[in-house]
C-alpha cells in the first residue's frame, strides 16, 4: 500500500522496492540486490523527498544541471 501511495503521488516507479527475504535465502538475496542496483542505476540519483541539508555535492550538481 505504501508503494502504491507513493507512486500515486508521483514518485518514480521502482524508487521504493520491497522484498520478503529470509536469512537462509542467500541466493535470492544476491539476485534481488543485483536487480535493485540495476533498477536504481537506471533511475539515477533521487531528487524527490531529499532534504536540502543532506543533499550531497553530486546531487546539487545534477540539480543545477537540470535547472539549466
Amino acid at each position: 500500500m505504501l508503494k502504491s501511495l507513493l507512486e500515486y503521488l508521483g514518485l518514480e516507479k521502482g524508487r521504493l522496492q520491497l522484498a520478503w527475504l529470509s536469512s537462509a535465502e542467500a541466493e535470492r538475496f544476491v539476485k534481488i540486490a543485483k536487480e535493485t542496483i540495476e533498477l536504481v542505476r537506471k533511475l539515477g540519483p533521487a531528487k524527490k523527498l531529499v532534504k536540502k541539508k543532506f543533499a550531497t555535492e553530486r546531487h546539487r550538481k545534477t540539480q543545477k544541471n537540470n535547472e539549466k
Binding site: 500500500m1 505504501l2 501511495l5 507513493l6 503521488l9 523527498l49 531529499v50 532534504k51 536540502k52 541539508k53
Partner: peptide, 22 residues
Amino acid sequence: GTTIDEKTDLELFQIIRTFHTA
C-alpha cells in the same frame, strides 16, 4: 524536521501521517 522552510518535511509529514491511517 518541524519547520516549514524545508519543503521535504511538509511532504513527508503528510505522507507519513496519512499512511499511519492506512
